[in-house]
């Protein structure tokens, strides 16, 4: 009796696997490019996948696009990279959550003569020669762009008295997010110091410039855990400081945190004539905030182009051609150009 039950269960499982494995098979005559993304949670990755699939169609390769459940799942992603290598694909594209954790896998790919292409943040700091090329946003430049645009609006307020600029950064480990935060901080510091005012960057130790006092204080908040409650708390701590004149969120999560925190404050603190808010990427909440002029504007990457260019590089690699890193670019958008042909395709809900 009991054995029969177990047998039934096993058979059900086998059937399930057969059915499931039937899905996701590409054209067997084409070469396959394995792509390991950082996850599917954020709409950003859907746009990347869209670009990759389009390139796969255009260039005649199968794309197998995978990613871990969440952006904290470093170990799960390393397993995915290893699995992808074990399938011996023609090329593999990686957006590493954590460089050091992925290095073994990257070396293994090299040992197996599988070319590795970095996309989005890629595999920064990987040893020379292991990465064929990268298709990514220059995140440092993108951060500078955000600082430049914010500075143009708040420069008047910065000339007298003491004031504070808040920065919400999802984390300090990921290269892409750190660079956007760093690019913003460096540029803002330079712009303000060029007017003879002093700047102190406080908050998280990683970004501190060693000063604690200054005419302008840039306050970097990083939530202890990556979830909505902690993000909102970090943003709200900044918004509750009376001398705050502007705030920057360096990715979709951080921008959402600012929007949610502001909604929880009576009357709201952010707006173009109040605390100037600048975001990064898009997403339904952020687009809404920009349309309602709660946000001055945001910097968007070009996720479709990231996916497309990565596959393009992969095809070059498998054909033995040479290639260089591609900057897939970033754009500034506001309520005024949000619906323009140049911006609209780059945004996702």
């Amino acid at each position: 009796m009991k054995n029969k039950k177990i047998l039934c269960c096993l058979m059900a499982l086998v059937t399930a696997f057969t059915v499931l494995s039937g899905c996701g098979m590409g054209n067997p005559s084409q070469k396959t490019v394995e792509m390991v993304a950082k996850g599917f949670q954020h709409d950003f990755w859907k746009a990347v996948k869209k670009g990759a699939d389009q390139a796969g169609k255009d260039l005649g390769v199968n794309i197998n696009f995978v990613g871990p459940e969440g952006e904290g799942a470093i170990a799960a992603q390393v397993e995915m990279i290893n699995n992808a290598i074990n399938k011996k694909p023609a090329a593999i594209c990686i957006a590493a959550l954590d460089t050091t954790a992925s290095l073994d896998a990257v070396n293994k790919a090299k040992a197996n003569n599988i070319p590795v292409i970095g996309f989005d943040s890629g595999v920064p700091g990987a040893p020379e020669g292991t990465i064929f090329a990268n298709a990514s946003t220059d995140n440092y430049k993108a951060g500078e762009l955000a600082a430049q645009k914010m500075y143009e609006t708040i420069s008047q307020k910065l000339t007298t008295g003491s004031s504070r600029i808040g920065v919400v950064s999802q984390e300090a480990n990921s290269q892409s997010i750190s660079m956007r935060t760093q690019g913003f901080l460096d540029k803002m510091e330079k712009l303000i110091e060029s007017t003879g005012r002093s700047v102190a960057i406080i908050g998280h130790t990683k970004f501190s410039n060693g000063k604690t006092q200054g005419d302008v204080i840039i306050d970097v908040a990083i939530p202890p855990e990556i979830n909505d409650t902690q993000g909102q708390t970090s943003a709200q701590t900044l918004l509750n400081k009376d001398d705050l004149i502007a705030i920057y969120g360096s990715n979709e999560f951080a921008a959402k945190a600012i929007i949610n925190a502001d909604a929880a404050i009576s009357g709201g603190r952010i707006g173009n004539d109040k605390v100037v808010a600048v975001g990064f990427d898009s997403g339904a909440l952020q687009i809404d905030a920009i349309r309602n002029r709660k946000f001055l504007g945001s910097v968007t990457q070009d996720p479709i182009s990231i996916g497309y260019r990565a596959v393009e590089l992969a095809v070059k690699a498998m054909n033995g051609e040479e290639a260089e890193d591609v900057d897939t670019g970033s754009q500034w958008y506001t309520a005024d150009n949000i619906d323009s042909d140049a911006i609209k395709p780059l945004l996702y809900q």
Binding site: G39, F40, Q41, H42, E69, G70, E225, N227, D228, T229, Q232, K256, N260, G283, A284, L285
Partner: peptide, 15 residues
Amino acid sequence: YAATYTTILPGAGQG
């Protein structure tokens, strides 16, 4: 959660 944070990410909730 939906009322407070508006967008829900799949794969989240652990912890």
